[in-house]
Amino acid sequence: MIYIDKYAYFSGLKEVSPPLKILFGGTALIACLCSKSFLSFAIVFLTMFYVTVFKAKIPLDYYIKLLLLPFCFLLFSVIGVIVNFTRSPLPDSCVLHWCFGNNNLFISEKGMVLASRLVCKSLSAVSCLYFIILTTPFRDIIYFLHVIRYPKTLLTLTVLIYQFIFLLMEIATVKMKSQLCRGGYRTIKGFARSFAMLWGSVFIQSYLKSEWVYKSMLARGYCGHFQLLPKEFRINKKEIALLLLFFLFVMIPNLF
């Protein structure tokens, strides 16, 4: 999973200006969240899929793996939407039902439509975010946030959290390797033991390491928030017009 942000540096769209990519992903995301029509979701998802896999050249199998991750969460949450519970008589539109005495569990047509809309909406929204993540290096996202006057404290927090997540993951990955070498994780008991030892030591070490990182930042004049060199982010009128057009195009199916 650690490659998720590395792809941004190698992607086929690395030359395209970062604000355009972020605004494109953002426009699509907003359009998608405002829509109700399945066609809109399909347009957004397919556009993002095309741009990410064919233009940015993210390997298809990796992209599918990434999409499956939120999809699993989605499936579980959707169960709650589909399956309804009632004590009164069943509504007419119910497709399937189970009775336990007075209590009825049922799946209605309305619930099915709602659930499938929810799934499509979430997946296409996620595809917009993946487009941004997989094509725009984190550094550029930070610059973008800086340019649009994102609060400094939050920006600093974002940068630090991002850095330390990788610190934590790096330490955990390499320690896990060293445990595998020494026969950890082979049995269920061994798994539990190794896993507990891993996190115990990862926290000690990442704490020690983060202290060094912090010291090195202090030594270079860090005083509470990150200073970024002003960088010119240009976006021309033509591009803005195209983005608006895309937004309208996605919204059209909602009219019918």
Binding site: I171, V174, K175, K177, S178, Q179, L180, C181, R182, G183, S194, M197, L198, G200, S201, Q205
Partner: peptide, 17 residues
Amino acid sequence: MQFINIVFQNAEDQMIA
């Protein structure tokens, strides 16, 4: 792995206990 083992470059990476 049963046969060959590695001593990592950074000793810290191996400490887990």
